[in-house]
Design a protein around this nucleic acid. Structure first.
Length: 845
RNA sequence: GCCGGGGUGGCGGAAUUGGCAGACGCGCUGGACUUAGGAUCCAGUGCCGUAAGGCGUGCAGGUUCAAGUCCUGUCCCCGGCACCA
């Protein structure tokens, strides 16, 4: 019988007690695992099917938080399960290690960003190893090192060659706290994604953009194919891309005869309602307004007011909530369909950055226009009669005509009588034919601004020559190394611009002096393709070998937080499509299946320093062990939901692991039991439970990933073992089987304990390559079941019958039950419903 | 406003196809072992009721022999999008 020594630190455990000492076991195996870095390596030449499981790489902020532990525990359990099922598994890890916090830390602590970052990586890597995650560290990717960012620069040059990277001056989002530009995707409700209290300003700057909009249609349509992605994420991306079909229509300004007439182009999805247009509404920042206001200070002031209102609304984060407010410019435009003069207004609900910044206002068929028209007493003119079925609900307020439903056109000249759908087509065709408009598609998605006015990022490999203009750095000169010992202050402008050795360069075209681009790349560039690098992390000749990508991609399972649903996950889809078009890869999409796990919260709130409810993984590991911390993060909730961390909950897991440990330790060398599985009902019961448990855990891995129920199933098995063990001895052969399988079932969740018990059972070789247990449906089947008996739908009794009992037997047993007899005594039986294997319901009157 | 997800004991959560609501864990109560118990083992634990029994899955209806699960309406919570023309 295995025995534990007393640990000196604990109060005298009695010597005959076996104690689960997680710290001792985990220290021992940690040591063994450190010796062999190839332990979790994928096999280079194998006939096994491949499986690429990936968790989103962390930013090296300093230490892991429980959200990481949960994320990696899910991925690690899956990786181990797939290994045990005979797959060639790729399970790598890396560091998204460029970014602002390193720079901010540098300013605060006077530590260079590189040093700060590498120190954090070392610590987090230590934590990951201590938690026992099975990563192939030989493939580690660190994005802030030149061997990685060189390829960011290389890709940038390829993008540039293809016109997918370009420089332009435009209004961009500026976060004063970050002291840099932000991409549209990094602005949330008008605020910085990293500084929720900071309102993003607009600045006019010259910046580098990546032409993601070239792929708008494909990014949208391919979402349909991503059946392994959560619907929620697909919807978020669909909304973000924001495709909208409509028509552009040119309204000419009404001017005195002979004068040149400017044009206002409006975008509308409902050109069929254009005969109901009673005004034009311009965005306050529309370029034409400067002209209108040239000699009109009052108008200028009023428009400035509207601009201020829009800005205010953005700050509040609810642009729909502000009251509609507009100004009549006193000008008119001509509706090209009916040649009618309509007044031109400026309104605070029109956005310059969507469509054309100008709309035709149709109060009768648009809610916002309706509201606006009523406020300013503009004409409301009907152009659509809704279909009969919609009339009752839409014309609830008959005083004024209003409907947004489809229907039949009226008051619409030659188009009267058409259905809306047909009218849209014909009217767009008419516009195109007569040269005053056309059908078009607009997107909400904008090109990706990647310039950042900060230091800690990939230098953009571009030069500016007075003679040759913008000149790309030649490929052979890559990488453009990010210099060290740079003075980082938030004085504005890029820190690199204050490093003359960096800025001053030679033009590769003319050999004359050139100036280097001093902005760095958005860190989302780094994470857009990092998972390809894992397939060939050490390649110095290319970002990767295409053959290797063809083998590993797409990623079979990607796991991470939903907060990246539109940032990282849309950029990396874009990057994949560009790489495909460059001929580097074959796959259209990077990720076949995506899983977004819930957050780890405490006391109903997100963990945060200010709330003081942060749970530290190091602390949990020290108190309960890595196995308990990992397993609890899987047990406390299904992985897609938020998890409320409770310290008493993790104690329960530790207790359970102790029960497993003691059971196996006590019975590691089974004695000579005379009982046999065939003769002992208790043994049969254990055997059945074992096979049922294997089935449940296996099914959950294959299907819905509810690891919480996997773990409770295993707990039930252990509870059963305890209750039987006390009563009688278990046949030696069965005991050996059940111990072995129990350890295998735990291996994905509690790798340390599983390794220890595996050894204790005298098993040789890595548990990771041991085959996952198989269940036998015949052995899992119940012989006898308890069937509930209802009378009028209320539970009145339970009868024990053979599992395969036919209806008649079930009914007879039910009728024979004393409680049931009492319940139906003196009543007339109307009907008896018998569902074999489920229940009996007797309906009486 | 639109699109997702959710609402079940004191708590985290089970119930995959309509078929014993509350698995498993926490907490709590009691017991055993013990010099000791914050270790371990055993038992109990939805609510009301001494009991028989009744009531229970946000709320109100409906379908059904049978509803947490299906249908209609409604309220609340979380996440995303939003004067998107």
């Amino acid at each position: 019988m295995a025995q534990e020594e007393n640990s000196p630190g604990t109060r005298d455990n009695r010597p005959d007690e076996i104690r689960y000492d997680a710290q001792r076991i985990e220290a021992k195996w940690s040591e063994i695992w450190q010796q062999d870095d190839s332990l979790y390596a994928a096999e280079p030449h194998t006939t096994k099917p491949k499986y690429y499981v990936l968790e989103m790489l962390p930013y090296p902020s300093g230490a892991l938080h429980m959200g990481h532990v949960r994320n990696y525990s899910i991925g690690d359990a899956l990786a181990r399960y797939m290994w045990m099922n005979g797959y060639n598994v790729l399970h790598p890890m890396g560091w998204d290690s460029f970014g602002l916090p390193a720079e901010n830390a540098a300013i605060q602590n006077n530590t260079p960003p590189r040093e700060w970052t590498l120190r954090n990586i070392a610590n987090m890597k230590r934590q990951m190893k201590r938690l026992g995650f099975a990563y192939d560290w030989a493939r580690e990717v660190t994005t802030c090192l030149p061997d990685y960012y060189k390829w960011n620069q290389w890709f940038f040059l390829k993008f540039y060659e293809r016109g997918l990277a370009y420089r332009k001056k435009s209004r961009v989002n500026w976060c004063p706290k970050c002291a840099t530009v932000l991409a549209n995707e990094q602005v949330v409700g008008g605020r910085c994604w990293r500084h929720e209290d900071t309102i993003v300003e607009q600045r006019e700057l010259e910046q580098w953009f990546l032409r993601i909009t070239k792929y708008s249609d494909e990014l949208l349509s391919d979402l349909e194919e991503l059946e392994g992605w959560p619907e929620k994420v697909r919807t978020m991306q669909r909304n973000w891309i924001g495709r909208s079909e409509g028509t552009l229509v040119d309204f000419k300004l009404a001017v005195p005869a002979g004068a040149p007439a400017a044009t206002i182009t409006v975008f509308t999805t409902r050109v069929d309602t254009i005969y109901g247009a009673t005004s034009i509404q311009l965005a306050p920042e529309h370029p034409l307004i400067a002209e209108f206001a040239a000699n009109n200070d009052l108008l200028r002031a009023e428009v400035n007011q509207l601009i201020a209102e829009q800005r205010k609304a953005k700050e509040v984060g609810d642009i729909g909530a502000i009251e509609k407010h507009g100004v009549n410019t006193g000008r008119f435009a001509i509706n090209p369909y009916n040649h009618e003069r309509v007044p031109i207004w400026v309104a605070n609900y029109i956005l310059m950055d969507y469509g054309t910044g100008a709309i035709m206002s149709v109060p009768a068929h648009d809610e916002r226009d309706y509201e606006f028209a009523r406020k300013y007493k503009l004409e409301i003119r009907l152009a659509i009669i809704p279909l009969a079925k919609d009339i009752e609900e839409t014309v609830a307020e008959p005083a004024l005509p209003f409907t947004t439903s489809d229907g039949t056109l009226v008051n619409s000249g030659p188009f009267s009588g058409l259905d809306c759908d047909e009218a849209i087509k014909k009217m767009a065709a008419k516009a195109e034919q007569d040269g005053f408009g056309k059908a078009t598609v607009t997107f909400r998605l904008k090109d990706w601004g990647v310039s950042r006015q900060r230091y800690w990022g990939t230098p953009i490999p571009m030069l500016y020559c007075d003679k040759d203009g913008i000149v790309p750095v030649p490929e052979e000169d890559l990488p453009v190394i990010l210099p060290e010992n740079v003075d980082i202050t938030l004085t504005g402008g890029s820190p690199l611009s204050r490093v003359p050795e960096f800025v001053n360069a030679t033009c590769p075209k003319c050999g004359g002096p050139a100036r280097r681009e001093t902005d760095t790349m958005d860190t989302f560039v780094d994470s857009s393709w990092y998972f390809y690098r894992y397939a060939d992390a050490k390649n110095t000749k290319a970002p990767f070998d295409s053959e290797k990508i063809a083998y590993w991609f797409p990623i079979d399972q990607y796991i991470g937080g939903v907060e990246h649903a539109i940032l990282h996950l849309i950029y990396s889809r874009f990057w994949t499509k560009v790489m495909r078009d460059l001929g580097l890869i074959k796959n259209d999409e990077p990720v076949a299946r995506l899983f977004t796990q819930g957050m780890v919260i405490k006391g109903g709130a997100k963990m945060s320093k200010s709330l003081g409810n942060v749970v530290s993984p190091d602390d949990m590991v020290a108190r309960y062990g890595a196995d308990s911390a990992r397993m609890y993060s899987l047990f406390a909730a299904p992985p897609d939901r938020d998890l409320d961390w409770q310290d008493t909950g993790i104690e329960g897991i530790q207790r359970f692991l102790g029960r497993v440990y003691r059971f196996v330790a006590r019975n590691a060398s089974p004695g000579s039991s005379t009982a046999s599985v065939e003769t002992s009902t208790a043994a049969r019961q254990i055997q059945r439970k074992l096979h049922q448990t294997i089935k449940r855990v296996t099914d959950d891995f294959q299907g819905r990933w509810h690891f919480n129920t996997c773990i409770s199933a295993t707990m039930e098995l252990v509870n059963e073992l305890y209750s039987i063990e006390a009563a009688e001895s278990i046949p030696a052969s069965l005991l050996a089987e059940v111990q072995r399988d129990l350890v295998l079932l735990l291996a994905p969740f509690a790798p340390y304990l599983a390794a220890e018990l595996w050894e204790m059972l005298g098993q040789k070789g890595s548990l990771l390559r041991a085959p996952w247990p198989k269940y036998d449906p015949a052995l899992a089947k119940e012989d006898e079941i308890e069937v509930p008996v209802q009378v009028n739908g209320k539970l009145r009794g339970l009868v024990s019958v053979p599992a395969d009992s036919v209806q008649a037997v079930l009914q007879a047993s039910a009728m024979a039950d004393e409680k049931v007899k009492a319940a139906i005594a003196g009543k007339q039986i109307v009907k008896v419903i018998v569902v074999p294997g489920k229940l009996v319901n007797i309906v009486v009157r």
